[in-house]
């Protein structure tokens, strides 16, 4: 594994694993937007996913593997870079780097914590003050729609989601263009599309992710 012993190899692993998780996030949010089509649509979608059985677990395993690889590689390259400049400057000025690029190492762990909370909150339903009406999966009938609505009616839960989604939006704004560069997808002729993809996908994630808790808080989406 000489490939992985280099930072270049680690960044390629981060790019591919990041891309897998990014792809999941986008599809996951598109799926979740079905909440705006009403309880039947969202619950049918949830039942369909649950019905996947083995395939669902295979997919979850791939996702978990990607997240682990992404975090391990991110931690390693970060430590390498911190060690590469033991003595800093009295004055540092930046010209082009973005806020998003400089906060990758803070946004990442924040998102990881959120993912844990999110799974405990809406997937397993444990470790959370469960509002009246909330049904855990162990309870039998799945009413994902109501669970989401009751969950987001707690204002601080919604606030946590919104903060995490905005952190994710920043992370992806740099991440999407960065991952293309890391795997060598760069050409002067397409670079404006790279920037477009970064803006488009990060804004989509922000808009989709914020819209759901916000709609519940505003009472636009009601439990059934």
């Amino acid at each position: 594994m000489r490939f992985y012993t280099t930072s270049v190899g680690k960044k390629i692993v981060m790019a591919i694993s990041g891309f897998i998780v990014f792809g999941f996030v986008v599809i996951h949010l598109v799926g979740n937007l079905q909440i705006f089509f009403g309880p039947e649509t969202l619950n049918r979608y949830a039942e369909m996913l649950q019905g996947l059985g083995g395939a669902l677990w295979l997919f979850r395993a791939l996702l978990l593997l990607s997240i682990v690889l992404h975090i391990v590689a991110a931690t390693q390259v970060t430590l390498q870079s911190w060690q590469a400049r033991p003595k800093g400057y009295a004055v540092t000025r930046y010209r082009t780097t973005s806020y998003a690029a400089r906060t990758m190492r803070w946004g990442g762990p924040l998102i990881a914590l959120f993912v844990v909370y999110h799974i405990l909150h809406l997937t397993t339903g444990g470790l959370h003050p469960r509002p009246a009406g909330f049904i855990s999966q162990a309870g039998g009938t799945i009413n994902v729609y109501n669970n989401v609505v009751y969950g987001f009616q707690i204002w601080w839960t919604s606030a946590l989601y919104i903060i995490a989604i905005l952190a994710l939006c920043l992370h992806l704004y740099h991440g999407v263009s960065s991952m293309m560069q890391s795997v060598g997808l760069n050409h002067p002729r397409w670079n404006q599309w790279r920037r477009f993809a970064a803006v488009f996908f990060s804004l989509f994630v922000a808009a989709a992710g914020v819209s759901i808790p916000l709609a519940v808080l505003l009472g636009l989406v009601q439990p059934v």
């Binding site: 930072s7 960044k11 060690q83 590469a84 082009t96 400089r102």
Partner: peptide, 15 residues
Amino acid sequence: EDAGFGACSNHGECE
């Protein structure tokens, strides 16, 4: 890598 340089994270400050 052996020389102890850091890892590129595409800030673009070099350019």
